[in-house]
């Protein structure tokens, strides 16, 4: 958890003096904390394949140290694997990610490692059935073994459809209570939506890499990028289309852009008299309408750089550019 306090230092620093890049001075010491042993961490693949390649970085981001990769795991709780499929839907980008930036050290669906190892980033998919002791042990172990825990998708973050669960079904009718992981462990980042888009998972993976292995400048960018997702994690474990009413319209912030309509995965939102109308009988409580809303969070320091960040991510993925 050294990293987290480091992150917080950066953020509190930023709040004090928004224009000045304060961060780089502080972090030096904590960054080296808990870098897992890459050799042990990569057992799914034969040693011949472990090639740390020079990555094709990066227009703006000057000399990137030829760092080792970060380690990522996918921890499957009570979810549907759709979030993992979304990650895999980066197609050739998935290989760019795994070749250059991240070793997938744990993922029951894709690799043979059976126990949750130490890792830099745990992507947790699914909510936790508290009536199943294996699930509870797994989520605790994930927290213990990971530097950064990401609630990947709506079930982990907010419960999503498992919020409706009430047990009563054979062969385990006692499986009736499902909790978002944030009710049981500290969660560093939320990535809501059902499922989070392939691009958003890619962006978080790249930013996690920059945060852990990048230059000071890159660390600062990555920290700024990830901050709103940390804030979402701090905001709480409940989400619903009603958030648009409660936290946007009621707060006098809605300007009727319609983003929520496009984001909703079950077409539960339409615009009525310039404001979103939520069909609450359709809403599955995934939280994406609020997260995607430009008036939930809007960080000028990051989004003003949309052009440069977009180019940097494209370059990192080995596409676009000239």
């Amino acid at each position: 958890m050294g990293l987290l306090s480091y992150l917080k230092e950066i953020f509190t620093g930023k709040q004090d003096a928004p224009e000045a890049p304060v961060a780089p001075a502080a972090p030096a010491a904590p960054t080296k904390v808990e870098v897992p042993q890459p050799a042990e961490a990569k057992p799914a693949q034969t040693p011949a394949d472990v090639k740390v390649e020079q990555k094709p970085e990066e227009t703006k981001m000057e000399e990137l140290p030829v760092a080792d990769k970060i380690t990522i795991g996918h921890v499957h709780m009570s979810g549907c694997t759709g979030c993992l499929v979304s990650l895999a839907d980066n197609y050739e980008g998935l290989f760019a990610l795994l070749d250059n930036y991240a070793d997938l050290v744990y993922c029951l669906t894709l690799a043979d490692v059976r126990d949750i190892p130490k890792m830099d980033v745990a992507l947790v998919e699914g909510s936790v059935c508290i009536n199943d002791h294996h699930s509870v042990e797994d989520i605790k172990k994930a927290r213990e073994n990971a530097t950064i825990v990401v609630a990947l998708g709506a079930c982990a973050a907010y419960g999503n459809v498992t919020r409706f669960a009430r047990g009563g079904q054979w062969n385990q009718p006692q499986h009736e209570s499902y909790l978002p992981i944030g009710d049981l462990i500290d969660v560093d980042l939320y990535l809501p939506a059902c499922p989070p888009s392939k691009e958003s998972i890619r962006n978080v993976a790249v930013m996690a890499y920059l945060l852990l292995k990048g230059t000071d400048e890159q660390k600062e960018l990555a920290a700024a990028y990830l901050k709103p997702l940390m804030d979402l994690a701090a905001r709480g474990v409940e989400a619903c289309g009603c958030d648009l009413m409660v936290d946007v319209i009621n707060q006098g912030l809605c300007m009727g852009c319609g983003t929520c309509v496009a984001a909703c995965p079950v077409r539960a939102i339409d615009m009525v008299y310039g404001k979103p109308n939520i069909d609450r009988e359709m809403c599955i409580k995934c939280g994406v309408c609020y997260a995607q809303c430009p008036r939930s969070f809007f960080n000028f320091d990051v989004i003003n750089q949309f052009e440069a960040i977009g180019e940097a991510i494209d370059a990192a993925m080995g596409k676009g550019g000239e």
Binding site: F164, R166, H175
Partner: peptide, 19 residues
Amino acid sequence: PVRGIEKLAIGKSMHQAPK
């Protein structure tokens, strides 16, 4: 773990249950 989709669908609208 058994999320119990068939049980939690009861009482929901027919439009939401398949979602």
